[in-house]
């Protein structure tokens, strides 16, 4: 598979939120306002690229070499949790403007299953290092795209008169279904 196909597949065809169902908690949690959606998307892009490549290196050069593949889940979650902590401290010291922008979204990413999901998918699909790097970046871009589109729609549904039992999460899920339907049209492109 060429890199162009890989990029299209990661952003649209196998969109991490709408086709693979990963990272739905922040999808529903941070999409009420456009500002928070943009902040979350930036933080996810940043962390996923770092986590995706770092876990690939650790898996290929440490776990496989020492026959410790069964420790994958534990190793990955520890890497992600410490990476998030490290990134947070680093940004606070050296790039305060970016830190202020990402704010509370950084710690939340530890339990964002999109990040962990991308790391596991990179291994399961047997990507090379460069493919893993590209896939991590564009899965995260696809996440951001879907989240920002959804936040735009959700701001509108706040103004609409929705029947009481359907309010809030329920109508949000139906709206997400509509976007997912739109993304479904990309199926079979690659």
């Amino acid at each position: 598979m060429g890199y162009f196909e890989l990029i299209i597949a990661c952003i649209f065809v196998n969109n991490i939120l709408l086709a693979q169902f990963l990272g739905n908690c922040p999808f529903l949690g941070t999409s009420k306002k456009m500002e928070t959606a943009v902040g979350m998307s930036m933080a996810v892009v940043f962390v996923t690229v770092m986590a995706g490549t770092l876990t690939w290196v650790i898996y290929t050069y440490i776990l496989v070499n020492f026959d410790l593949v069964y420790l994958r889940t534990i190793a990955f979650i520890v890497v992600i949790a410490s990476l998030v902590q490290f990134v947070e401290m680093f940004l606070k010291k050296s790039i305060p403007a970016l830190y202020a922008g990402l704010g509370i979204f950084l710690p939340l990413i530890t339990t964002n299953c999109a990040v962990m999901g991308v790391c596991v998918l990179n291994i399961d699909k047997e990507f090379t290092f460069l493919q893993a790097l590209v896939a991590s970046l564009f899965y995260a871009v696809g996440f951001g795209l879907a989240l920002i589109l959804f936040a735009g729609l959700r701001e509108r549904t706040l103004l609409a008169r929705v029947p009481k039992p359907l309010q809030d999460t329920s109508i949000a899920l139906v709206t997400a279904g509509m976007i997912s339907l739109a993304f479904f049209a990309f199926q079979g492109m690659v």
Partner: peptide, 9 residues
């Protein structure tokens, strides 16, 4: 995929 969201909603 889309059915999952709508059915859960």
């Amino acid at each position: 995929a889309p059915g999952a969201f709508i059915c859960l909603g």
